[in-house]
Write a protein that binds this DNA or RNA. Structure first.
Lengths: 354, 354
DNA sequence: CTGAAAGCGCTAACAC
DNA sequence: GTGTTAGCGCTTTCAG
């Protein structure tokens, strides 16, 4: 049986209340007894029960994170893992733990949601925009649970952080236009997602403005072994006359099928077709040719989301939304000169690969 | 203020005890009142406080997971994200939540460890072998916290799951030998890691047995932008006479620098040099040529770890260890015919890419 | 400055 | 079958 505050009090020959004050660095304890108790606590390696504290204080010091399962299909993007890491790290800095909940399908969203909310075991939530429907968000709003959304869910008002989808696409589209492309195919995700709409609209606007022809096809995100349909759809569009001279994969998960389609047609990149992606990935550098992409500040996004939530939990009033800029990493897949990509944020290396 | 059991009891005109019995499906309540209370609970959308239950029952229904940060450097492997997903999903099936803790450096390990253990907010732990030192594991043992290690930490006895590192390497090495390679370079991770030792020893043994020459260099896992030193070390070994005809990157994080070295030397794969990796990744299919690799059953590993821990928590006595087999996915990087890789486990697609 | 007591929301004996 | 009571480990008045 682990030590309780009562044990500590008995050993120190004081009351529980006094020990509690020492634990919480509350005033009203003489320096002498405080020192004595502090020492005892250290010697005993006593740790107060977070559960009991939670009951008494009605706060758990846990934040919930609801994101999609990283199934085999989604590992062509490092988005969620990097986001989760950043959130966890930032939360830890304020002594908050992260309670994780993932959903692997739409039906599943609701159960993920209740699992983490059940019993109010978190003080607040960070949720992926795609992970909560209007209903769930509305419920959170009603219940008064503090939360911040990563990405935007249209309609209801809420705190949110996101990358500048429109800006990133605009910048990349202009880059393609500058390189002389007049007919570009964008492969985008499912139409009902706000992030998809933002990217597509921005692409269309930039192309229109230049009097160039924007082609867009929407595709579901699908596990790699099942991407046949997606590959075929892209192949068909790519083969259609008049031919597009550039292909824009508007999400990380669409890059592999896009590559598949290009391989299937035997097109040479960048000579026959220029290619770019949204959402950078370490392997892009090693594709042949290396793939130009819009890089998202994923880590910063996670930090921003967490800070916003922590502010909310502290009773503050953070700005309702925070949009982070993207940047283009030029590699050889568009022809022209490829800048060396700027060095990424350094992280100290510890063993991790398996 | 959320509803409490007291409110429900008052509205139902029964005592808290009776409501509690209904909540826990305990006997001793007439069918009629049970039905009435159940209905009321549903109408009110009452959820008992997990914190209060935790206090009373001395179990939190949370499991802790301690894994490395997924810094930029480690996203060339999908190992940790996939593992985490599997754990979370399996835990959810038994109504357990996952409390996440990550460490981004060796110094950090201890704080990650105390953060999650502080206040006993978890019933048990799944930890990455590299994440806990002997000291921490020993402390867990002493404190009697149930835990299972993913990978092996030598010395102390503990429950653990792992992939068959030796078997996977042996199989792949034999494959290379069959293709006629007599001099092979393995790039492996830091020597002090058991998984690295297992892979290296198995490689050496298989090569020796065939009278072939095994060359091994150890390299730290390092962030992508800093891999210059690693690339250079590999390049140097690759250039050394007599030349190796095959290169074995013994961890996911070593594949990008290995590719870098090969590119730098202008070697053609597989004609000048065959290349294989340990730990498969969705992008390997789109490298040129597609990379042959040892695939690890990561998801199954996570499920096994979680099941072992859940069994422990339920008071059972699971087998102390579980080793899962790997399989080779043949692609074109070794020359010869490349089998189509067997279809991976299907997952239903929901929007996830950003 | 310190101790005693009430209460956070729930469970589990044990009466009735 | 149902109500009552005593904790679970901690915080927080409020006396002394």
């Amino acid at each position: 049986m682990p030590l309780t505050i009562k044990d500590v009090a008995a050993l120190a020959k004081v009351s529980k209340g006094t020990v509690s004050k020492v634990l919480n660095e509350a005033p009203g304890v003489s320096a002498a007894t405080r020192a004595r108790i502090t020492k005892l606590i250290r010697e005993l390696d006593y740790q107060p029960s977070a559960v009991a504290q939670g009951l008494a204080l009605r706060r758990t010091h846990n934040i919930g994170v609801v994101i999609p399962h990283t199934g085999e299909y989604s590992m062509s993007s490092a988005y969620w893992p990097l986001l989760l890491t950043a959130i966890t790290q930032r939360a830890a800095a304020d002594a908050f733990n992260v309670l994780l909940s993932t959903a692997h399908s739409e039906e599943d969203v609701d159960s993920a949601y209740r699992l983490i909310l059940r019993g109010r075991r978190v003080d607040g939530l960070v949720v992926g925009a795609e992970q909560f429907g209007q209903r769930q968000l509305g419920e959170l709003l009603v219940k008064g649970v503090p939360f911040v959304v990563v990405g935007r869910s249209p309609g209801l008002p809420h705190h949110h952080v996101d990358v500048d989808n429109a800006g990133g696409v605009r910048q990349m589209t202009r880059h393609l236009l500058e390189l002389g492309h007049r007919r570009v195919l964008m492969v985008a995700g499912p139409e009902h997602l706000p992030s998809v709409t933002e990217r597509v609209d921005s692409f269309r606007a930039a192309m229109d403005r230049a009097g160039a022809e924007a082609r867009v096809i929407h595709q579901p995100y699908v596990p790699a072994p099942r991407s046949e349909g997606v590959i075929e759809a892209i192949r068909a569009q790519l083969a259609a006359e008049p031919r597009c001279t550039a292909l824009f994969a508007a999400a990380g998960d669409l890059v592999p099928p896009a590559l598949g389609a290009v391989e299937r047609l035997g097109l040479r990149v960048p000579d026959d077709l220029a290619m770019v992606g949204f959402d950078d990935h370490p392997f892009y550098e090693h594709l042949s040719p290396p793939l130009t992409a819009v890089a998202q500040p994923i880590r910063e996004l996670g930090l921003a989301a967490t800070e916003m939530l922590l502010a909310l939990l502290a009773g503050g009033e953070p700005e309702p939304s925070r949009i982070l800029p993207t940047r283009i990493v030029r590699r050889a897949s568009c022809g022209g000169r490829a800048d060396a990509s700027r060095a990424a944020v350094a992280s100290r290396g510890i063993p991790t690969a398996r």
